[in-house]
């Protein structure tokens, strides 16, 4: 169960791990946009290559990356099938005609393009945002990126603090859930057998103590935080200041070049266009 909460981050010391989380968030968003800009064979080929390069640079084992793709394999197959059967192209591109089924070359291209787009997007975002960035860095990065919003009274700091506390307490609460479940099992509670409604009912003896304890924890934590002079984000300084280095500028430069290349390939390159 613990792997669910923190399973995504893959500890390593690659260049990617050392990038400023703000830069990674920005690049991640750019990467998604870029993958949507791709229109033809060449730009999609570039996208594929870029995904492979990302895996290499971040030093994430391919096995782990494949695991995350496995999770969406059904969605991909489903969209691919839809594309193959429902895309209509010009008459001369028809390659199969049987009863009401018409398959065009266009459909096959589209199916492949979309599969590549989804896979690259998953690889890109997970490498930028989850595999190489701890949840807490991500929260820090978001807090600072969104800082300007505080001027229009968005409580950015408060949200970030909530995120931080949630991340801090997830393992604690999971552990507690396991403990309470064991305690109720020791009193004969059964969480695995019986109908769905019976099993849902069996969770009451777990959920009530869990809520009671979560509220108690929240109260105690609030007291402890007040005692440590917490008064919200105003006047607060930070130990860790995010610093951008030449690496980050280089990364931003690469993504800009990458975006430009995709746009150019879309315009000049021949072949099927989506």
């Amino acid at each position: 169960m613990k792997s669910v909460a923190f399973g995504q981050y893959y500890p390593s010391n690659s260049v990617m791990h050392r990038l400023d989380p703000r830069v990674k968030i920005v690049i991640g968003i750019f990467y998604i946009v870029a993958s949507f800009l791709c229109k033809n064979v060449l730009s999609f080929a570039l996208l594929t290559v870029s995904a492979l390069v990302l895996i290499l640079v971040s030093k994430i084992p391919v096995k782990i990356v494949l695991k995350s793709i496995k999770a969406i394999i059904f969605i991909m197959i489903f969209t691919a099938i839809l594309n193959i059967f429902w895309t209509k192209g010009p008459e001369e591109n028809l390659i199969l005609h049987w009863n009401f089924i018409n398959i065009y070359v266009d459909g096959i291209y589209n199916a492949v393009f979309i599969a590549v787009r989804i896979i690259s997007m998953i690889i890109g975002t997970s490498i930028f945002l989850t595999y190489t960035t701890t949840p807490i860095e991500l929260t820090d990065g978001l807090e600072r990126l969104l800082y300007p919003l505080t001027f229009i009274k968005v409580p950015v700091h408060e949200f970030a603090m909530m995120m931080t506390i949630a991340l801090r307490f997830i393992p604690t609460i999971i552990e507690e859930t396991e403990k309470i479940m064991s305690a109720q099992k020791a009193r004969g509670a059964d969480f695995t057998n019986g109908s769905l409604s019976k099993r849902a009912k069996a969770l009451i003896p777990v959920l009530i103590p869990l809520f009671v304890s979560a509220f108690r924890r929240a109260g105690e934590l609030a007291t402890a935080m007040t005692c440590r002079c917490y008064r919200g984000g105003n006047g607060r300084t930070r130990l860790k200041v995010l610093k951008t280095t030449y690496r980050d500028y280089l990364a931003l430069f690469f993504i800009a070049v990458f975006g430009a290349a995709i746009v150019l390939l879309n315009i000049y390159a021949p072949g099927y266009t989506m």
Partner: peptide
């Protein structure tokens, strides 16, 4: 039921 276990801090199991 034959081997009764009282866990650590069992008061957290009251519901």
């Amino acid at each position: 039921y034959r081997v009764g276990l009282v866990m650590q801090y069992p008061e957290y199991q009251l519901f």
